[in-house]
Amino acid sequence: MADAAVFKSDIKPDWCPGCGDFGVLNSLQKACADLNLEPHQVMIVSGIGCSSNLPGFFNSYGLHTLHGRSLPVASGVKLGNSDLTVIATGGDGDGYGIGAGHFVHSMRRNLDITYIVMDNQIYGLTTGQASPTTERMIKTKSTPQGNLESQLNPIALALAGGASFVARGFSGEPTHLAELYKQAIRHKGFALVDVFSPCMTYNKNNTYTWFKERIYKLEDQRHDPKNFEAAMARSQEWGTQIPIGVFYQNERMTYEEGEPAMAHGAMSKLPFKPLDPSILLEFV
């Protein structure tokens, strides 16, 4: 197995001390090393937000894009060079708020992409406004009277949206999290890993302690990830018992497997070929 250190860049993360994203980063570096990937084979595509700074701290190819647009950019990367291991990363605001439309369609599309959402249930980089996964009636800077909107359930949304791999991890459980990443990256198709990644600065509600008191592992309860109904039922659990682990996995044909243009290899590597003049026959 390769050393996780090869995936460390020489840039020190600028996250707040104790941020959940450190655990996400370390586990991802370990997972890539365990999978014997090499840095040049990986492309990490992020959106905008605290967590979206991750590519800068990871030694691989990286793209830091626009708020909410990591998935369509990552999809373009995969269409352009399917030989790359493509990992999209971002936060809950990025993926489930401004980028929610792309999230839904990326699941349908089923390109072989791993999507890691560092879910801290708050907007951090903009200093603490409500996010789509902020719980109801929680007070934030933008909801001083309490958040009136109900909390989005990313796991249920992913199941309904047709994701072929749906998992949840916790950055306080780094070994477990690294295993989830490995399964997600190995999975052929779109894989969501929603990660509880506590924000020490702006979310005083969903803390490490809060999660530690509530989470349990699906594999300990003999959950069958092939069972869609069971996965949907587990996705509804919140409050005193919150599951982490693989909710659902169902390998089906990926987009790139079905795309005839990609049958001859990665698009960016195809040699130049002059256009066959027979294409003009339809205009004569």
Binding site: R69, P72, V73, G76, V77, K78, G80, N81, M267, S268
Partner: peptide, 17 residues
């Protein structure tokens, strides 16, 4: 939004987009 973002992603890999 996705069309443009996807074209950028593809262009980034060296594929003409």
């Amino acid at each position: 939004i996705a069309s443009m973002a996807m074209a950028v992603g593809a262009g980034q890999t060296g594929a003409r987009a």
